[in-house]
Write a protein that binds this DNA or RNA. Sequence first.
DNA 1: GTGGGTGCAAAGTGTTTGCAAGTGT
DNA 2: ACACTTGCAAACACTTTGCACCCAC
Lengths: 176, 176
Amino acid sequence: MSESLSQFCLNKKMQCQQTDVSNARDTFKEFLNSKGLRVTTQRLAIFDAAYGYNDHFTAEDLLESARLIDDSVSRATVYRALPILTQSSLIREVDVGRDYKFYMANKNATTFKAQVICLDCDKIFEIDAPFMEWYGKTVADKLGLEVVTQRLQVTAHCQSDSKSMGCGNAPSRGNH
Amino acid sequence: MSESLSQFCLNKKMQCQQTDVSNARDTFKEFLNSKGLRVTTQRLAIFDAAYGYNDHFTAEDLLESARLIDDSVSRATVYRALPILTQSSLIREVDVGRDYKFYMANKNATTFKAQVICLDCDKIFEIDAPFMEWYGKTVADKLGLEVVTQRLQVTAHCQSDSKSMGCGNAPSRGNH
DNA sequence: GTGGGTGCAAAGTGTTTGCAAGTGT
DNA sequence: ACACTTGCAAACACTTTGCACCCAC
């Protein structure tokens, strides 16, 4: 039952993906215009590369992918584009405390996401944590301040029972 | 009333502080011995410097303070001592996603702490978030993995009403 | 005495920046 | 045309590391 539901969601997602990306691309162009920034081929290549990923990617990953689309893209431009993409909320930054940051396309921005970082397989899983909405409000009310961002992260080992099972437990059982 | 209560706690804290630190110092020595590591004057100076702080400090802060105790302490030794202190859980790392990490003496390790990072005054406030204990268990049960660490952070502006009030609202109203 | 610890300085790493040349509007 | 963008490479900031000397055990 849970299986069929997630299958349904997956199908729905793939069905919508193409138009979603296309919409997002237009949103990006509009965002650039609204900020007085220029629509360059490099920025579009970087955007397309970012939306080509279904999971997390680093600045270096993005450079590599963007260069497949437009080989003139430089590392500096990627680093200069990332804050723009983040501000437009078309991608979001996922900082898990490593020496480099991860990013992720905000394809279906729904509820707040928490990260589960596996110490064994080096993967990052995004899980829904809707109660964080409530937590933000609580903090805001209690302390009288305006919440800007929230971060909830869990580091864990993914094979608590059988050592040799390798990784991949978390994503199959959880929602991701 | 709230004033006198916090005053009482403060007195109590200062009263206990000395023996607490002394205990922790012994714990540190024992930890070093148990790991086959040597008790050096530099390591003790770094420990003392760390426990001289009542709030967060950086590696650079720690170097400066440790040098007041023992001027032979080098930056490298501080960086080499920090993982040891962290592993002994006498101090804990507080990574808020800046390019440098913060640390904090674990003087009264009680419940789980969340961080509220003020974007205006650049301060980090530690607040109790006991429900995180429950959250860890939930994640562990649902996804079948063994939780190692949890992190909950909120970035916020601390003057939502009056712009000119400056900072300092959060700590006076909250618990810290 | 010996093996781990230390200080120094150099290297490392992800990211940012100055500048001259290029390009969208 | 003009100002914003870009690529390149150097600069940056924090942290790590190689090495010769040192010291706790």
